[in-house]
Amino acid sequence: MKDGKCACEENVSESELFERLDKVLLDYHDKPGGLIPILQYAQAIFGYLPENVLKYISTKLNKSYSEVAGVVSFYSFFSTHPRGKYLIRVCLGTACYVRGGKEILDAVKKELKIDVGETTQDRLFSLEVGRCFGACGLAPVMLVNENVHRRAKPSKIAEILSAYKGGTGDEQ
C-alpha cells in the first residue's frame, strides 16, 4: 500500500505511524467518500484500528466518532483488535459455502483453537470470515494475508498452517 507500510515488520514508534497517517489524511480529507480509504490505509499502518486512531481520524475529518465507528463496524474487513502476524480469512460467500467453506472454517478453528474474530495466544494467527474475494472459480478459498489457498481441503489445513508456523508458509 502506498503510504501504508505495515508496522509489524519493523520497529516503528507510534508517532511515526501517526505521521504516515497524516500523509494519508492530507490526500483524502477533502475527498467525498474519503473515510473508507483512510480507514483502509490506517489499518494497514497500525495493523488494526485502535480507538485513539479512530478518534484522531474523526477529529481530522470533522466527523463524529459514532459515525466513524459506524463505518468501521459495518465492514468485516476492519478490525478494532490487534491481529496476528497472519490474518486468515475463510470465504463463506455463496460459491465457497456450497463447496465446503464452512468445513474449512471449522478445520481452522479446531486447529488453532480460536473462534472467528479472535487471535491465537502467540499472536501468530487471527481468524476472520470473508464474504467473497472474487475468486469463486477457485472455491473454497482461504486467504492467509495476501496468499490465496485455492480449492482448500479440511484435511490439508493443519499442514498449511504448520508451514506458516515454521516460517515457510509464504512459499506454499
Binding site: K63, S64, S66, E67, F74
Partner: peptide, 10 residues
C-alpha cells in the same frame, strides 16, 4: 450536528 447516534454494525 452532534452525531452521537449513528447506525453501528450491520
Amino acid at each position: 450536528g452532534i452525531g452521537s447516534l449513528f447506525p453501528q454494525c450491520r
